[in-house]
Design a protein around this nucleic acid. Structure first.
Lengths: 231, 231
DNA sequence: ACAGAACCTTGTCCCATCGCAAACTCAGGC
DNA sequence: GCCTGAGTTTGCGATGGGACAAGGTTCTGT
């Protein structure tokens, strides 16, 4: 908690333009927090009182339908700001954040947002770039859901995960946090059964390799083709 | 072009806190432009050089898939800022804007965005509220597409349109711009055939009334039930 | 007033995907 | 080292809604 090192932040976009002492100030106002897998960090609809920076681990950002179904809106990887509802003048969080793996985050009270954006050049700009990227990704998700078949959407989701949260391992890229068939179905708007079938088929075809809660993409090329969005 | 009246702006959220002379300044830097139906106002992927305020008419914001299918991401109604990619530090537009009806907009060059947000209190705040609302709506769309059946999505889309762009007419709320079955299918991720069948069925049940390019919602209550999202 | 285009409706077929059910496998706790 | 439950696999039947096709209707331009 106490020995937060300035080197944690100095290479992250929102802080990269700042001096060492500015970073010191920011850190001094932060609290570090650990979250175990499946912990809810903040709840959809609850009052916005903090914003966060993920230092380590992975999060799912989730919405729950009136019928109780969950759908995963996006994932957060290390180095990203999240819960930045204050940037949007919101007073409640529009979705919930849940730790997908053991995670570590810096936490600030909402009132500091104003101060940060005003005092630290580049902070606001970079935050809005983050938002922009998410907005773009959400638009992509909408078009995918509206136009593509299930297998294409699952292929695209795996590719995105591998790219955003992948770790190179022998013979492929492993998605770097525990993820169930159910989770994948919640990203793509299908059922865990269908996802299971697809992964089985792709495993036979040597495109992915998967075990309980783990997925390795071994042939991104062919997944790309399957996704129907060749580059 | 010349006699733009300050009263145009003074009641709109982004400008409501400003003095008469500030509004004058803003107007003096604006160009007014008319767009006929189906005109493309800006193109997905093109360089951001302007931002806009819709004074009159309605727009569709559209993304095109690699296969050439269009999907409608959102609609813009009078009084809304649009093309505000500069707020997100983007250099290309993430989607295209197309006039759905005869439309009138104010246009400013991108370089003024900075100036506006710095000089005019409330302008930035209100812009981000707009973005926030859109982001929320997009999240809702994603959950809908991922979890609901076609008839529910179409019902929800019609309700949203009636609310955002509806005009009270004898016996219901008419969607205030020309909209084809094809358009509705592009909002909901289905085919024009299915939309046509649904509208026919709902017409028999006296829930909507529709003609060529026009839709009137006569029984919002029941549509609400059909949408599966009772309030 | 007419021709052509744009838009809408409806029928039939069929397949991708869901829903349900049952069985298997593995990881961790006791 | 066994038990339990979470996660996964697979089969089978049902069906929503997409694809294709044909015909009807309303607009627009000349």
């Amino acid at each position: 908690m106490t020995q937060l090192d300035a080197s944690l932040l100095k290479d992250l976009p929102p802080f990269s333009q700042l001096t060492r002492s500015q970073i010191r100030e920011i850190l001094d106002q932060a609290t570090a927090k650990r979250y175990e897998p499946e912990t809810v960090i903040f709840h959809e609809g609850f009052e916005v009182d903090r914003f966060y920076l993920l230092l380590d681990g992975y999060l799912r950002v989730v919405r729950t339908t009136p019928e109780g179904e969950q759908i995963i809106v996006l994932h957060i990887s290390p180095g990203q700001l999240f819960g930045i509802a204050p940037a949007l003048q919101r007073d409640t969080y529009p979705a919930s954040a849940i730790a997908a793996s053991d995670s570590l985050a810096l936490v600030w009270p909402t009132r500091l947002w104003q101060e940060f954006t005003q005092s630290y050049p580049g902070f606001a700009t970079e935050s809005y770039k983050t938002l922009s990227a998410r907005l773009g990704e959400m638009q992509t998700r909408i078009t995918e859901l509206a136009t593509q078949a299930v297998d294409q959407r699952v292929a695209a989701a795996l590719l995105r995960l591998a790219e955003q949260s992948g770790r190179a391992v022998g013979g492929g890229v492993e998605i770097d946090f525990p993820i169930t068939r159910q989770n994948i179905s919640e990203m793509t708007g299908t059922t865990l059964h269908t996802v299971s079938r697809l992964l089985s088929a792709w495993e036979k075809a040597a495109i992915v390799k998967s075990t309980r809660k783990r997925v390795v993409v071994t042939d991104p090329q062919r997944l790309q083709v399957l996704s129907g969005t060749p580059r």
